[in-house]
Design a protein around this nucleic acid. Sequence first.
DNA 1: GTCTATATGGTGATAGAC
DNA 2: GTCTATCACCATATAGAC
Lengths: 203, 203
Amino acid sequence: MSLVTIPRGRYGDVVSTTNESRERLVAAARDLYASQGVGATSPRQVLAASGVGQGSLYHHFPAKHDLALAAVSATVADSLAAATGELGGDRPALDRLRAYLERPRDTANGCRIGRLTSDQTVMSDAELAAQVGSYFSGLVECLTEVFVEAGVPDGAASDRAYAALAIVQGGYVLARALADPTAMQRAVRGFVSMLAPAPEETA
Amino acid sequence: MSLVTIPRGRYGDVVSTTNESRERLVAAARDLYASQGVGATSPRQVLAASGVGQGSLYHHFPAKHDLALAAVSATVADSLAAATGELGGDRPALDRLRAYLERPRDTANGCRIGRLTSDQTVMSDAELAAQVGSYFSGLVECLTEVFVEAGVPDGAASDRAYAALAIVQGGYVLARALADPTAMQRAVRGFVSMLAPAPEETA
DNA sequence: GTCTATATGGTGATAGAC
DNA sequence: GTCTATCACCATATAGAC
């Protein structure tokens, strides 16, 4: 976060136009979006959090839409890469699935991407809505593959992928609504317990 | 929606102070909240939709919080009553559960109450957040009872109740994100197919 | 590319007549 | 109880100097 002045090239050409301001604006926006959503985040807040001036914001991002698209796209790309990485690999498919579902999640603010489905500013913008959609369609595809690998017939595998995703997204909603982080764990446990033929039904 | 003037009592006393303005404000707010959330709904919109004047709004509801509390409380009460009614009854517990899960839902705007968990204005207000919480804790209680009736051991019944609720809430998120109403049905189908020992696994 | 004004219009609320 | 008029403030930019 240090404010180093960027050295320019010898002949005046911009050598590594790091666009520090731009990156800091996007980083600040991503954080604020995660905790407040897009619509509730004002340019002022982004400016204050990033420490850059007003002119810089409107230089890099002509309108709020442009900043939002940059920030949301980056978050979608990161999250999707992390999830698909986690769901791929060499271990048995059901192990990977369980690991994904049971991974600890910060439920304090809900899913960074899932919560955007309730954000008017996002859903009424075709490009932003498409980003949100691409995240979930990517996950559906990946999870369907996992269920197929686990031996579930093709038709049912897709349904179970939707169900698994819904468990996580619904888990966020319940945890937030009940102000109880364990709600996510309970939902996941309830689902996972139905996956296997149950060794012994907790008699 | 007709604008009938209310007849007053013979002696000037207000007979059935229907508070038409108040009721119309709450009804308009409920509709707008359902489609845009609370934070994104302005007094102007409520006034325009209800047809009453600005003074009336601030007479009945000194601040935005008061209108929101009235509207959200009413929606929570209605939805909870409908759901518990649906989940109670004489049919076999699993039938009632399936009927609840498979009931057609309007996914266009997400869950009227669940979506409020992403609404900054709601979640940062203790009273509003408590309303949202009471809806879900009521449903958890009701669904747990259903699973117990269905023969699931006490400990596991609670987890499955959370899972069932998560399926519905997550189904709304997926349907919105993917702009595909069938996403909810797929998630529910995936979950329901795991409830029974599966007569024949769609071979 | 970055900054400091400045502008427009809506939000949330108040004042005071009827 | 209901209305119209008005207000201070902030969101979302734009202008133009440096």
